[in-house]
Design a protein around this nucleic acid. Structure first.
Lengths: 235, 235
DNA sequence: TTGACAAGTGTACAACGTACACCTATCGTC
DNA sequence: GACGATAGGTGTACGTTGTACACTTGTCAA
């Protein structure tokens, strides 16, 4: 058995062990501080030892994506295609929330690992089983984009508000003068204005709002037998 | 005048010149190969000279985003809010298409530069002028996500198909066996199956499809006086 | 016993971002 | 004109990164 690698001193490395350690390290410290050296330290091994199990850092990241995508629970079923798709995507979202760095890594990939293709294939299957045409499903998948993985690219995340209430109030008034609409929608629905300047909203709600909006749109096009031959949008 | 920097040998650096050179370099060689050293070479200057005009690389990237966002043409007007928003976003898309690396850099930013806030503020203004409530507009902006900048995060871009037709056919059949649905939608609408495995679709069409779908959804919610108090989505 | 093979080691290098001390041209003030 | 301040460009240096390449070593089949 290969169980007792070097004179039984420790369990030997393996692609799986390397990948799991990498995921754990990224969970703890963030991807930006995931280096081959730090990873090797964590595994109590010299940096170059990793290269016997992953070709290079890119392939390591590919493997990490595989690990996470495998965590997506595809067993949940819905009563109709819309619920089925929604539930599956919300499962994907759970996996992504467990690993905050995942979206960033997924987006940086240039090749889709097999598990990724499997997930997409089965998602497409849900639409097809619901009766949507292959043509419509194609566009629908594009329209979902990264949302099929359960995340939205939050461009320019709102920074946490400053602790000092006086500074916060000053900032609030300055922003209100320069960007009145931003302040207006940031404080919409919330009564305590000044605290709501930053991060005042519920990510899960926003995600489900957009997802439902898209799914409803898909259903409507499906019901009216939409095909891509029809004129659409501007011009 | 500061015109003739060092004994008139050359025009001196400036934040603007540094930023423009950086944008040009990224256009030519891609962001991944944009380094302070390469940039300094291009400007015929020693690397550390750049630090007199930008605090560090992050701030350089911030500046590059500012340059690009400033290129967005906000003069185009529409007859109604939907057209206005659509046209503005399509203008943004033009700017992004001129600089393919832009989406990547925008997504990596942690703070929004002023021009970015200006753009968002004015976009919000279009919705508000169209009569949408501040509450709805808030969710609508989240639903747009990175699409407000004219790009979709194409997760896992399809690689270019191999040149050798024999290899291509073999690959086609293997993919068809493992991922039947993917092949089905990839070839949907196109008669020449095997060439359509990779990159067979029109990015602009997909973008406008999804954008119109979203805008139509927004309009529908607006017309029925939707508010976020209403139950929504699963559960 | 041998010798092939897989796995871990050690050294080394180029590229990166950038801290810090330095030089030097230019300009406002006297 | 002399002079000190200041902005802008230089040179050297350090730590961190990914990884090439040559090596040792533990294991197992023949």
């Amino acid at each position: 058995m290969a169980q007792s690698g070097i004179a039984g001193r420790r369990t030997p490395l393996s692609r799986e062990r390397v990948l799991n350690a990498a995921v754990a390290l990224a969970d703890e410290a963030g991807v930006e501080s995931l280096s081959m050296r730090k990873l090797s330290e964590k595994l109590d091994v010299v940096p170059m030892a990793l290269y016997k199990h992953v070709a290079n850092k890119e392939e390591l990241l590919d493997g990490m994506v595989e690990v996470i995508v495998s965590e997506i629970d595809t067993r949940v079923r819905g009563e109709n295609w819309k619920d089925a798709v929604r539930l599956r995507i919300l499962s994907a979202r759970q996996a992504m929330l467990r690993h905050r760095w995942a979206s960033q890594v997924i987006e940086s990939r240039t090749k889709a690992p097999p598990v990724v293709l499997e997930y997409m294939d089965s998602l497409i299957g849900l639409f097809r089983a619901g009766g949507l045409s292959a043509d419509l499903t194609h566009h629908v998948m594009h329209a979902l984009g990264s949302r099929m993985w359960g995340f939205t690219q939050e461009v320019f995340p709102t920074p946490p508000p400053p602790a000092d209430p006086e500074v916060r109030a000053a900032m609030f008034h300055q922003v209100a003068r320069q960007y009145p609409y931003i302040i207006e929608i940031a404080t919409a629905g919330s009564h305590e204005q000044e605290t709501a300047v930053g991060s005042g909203c519920d990510d899960q709600f926003e995600f489900e709002f957009a997802l439902s909006l898209l799914l409803d749109g898909f259903e409507r096009l499906h019901q009216q037998n939409w095909t891509s031959g029809q004129a659409h949008g501007v011009r």
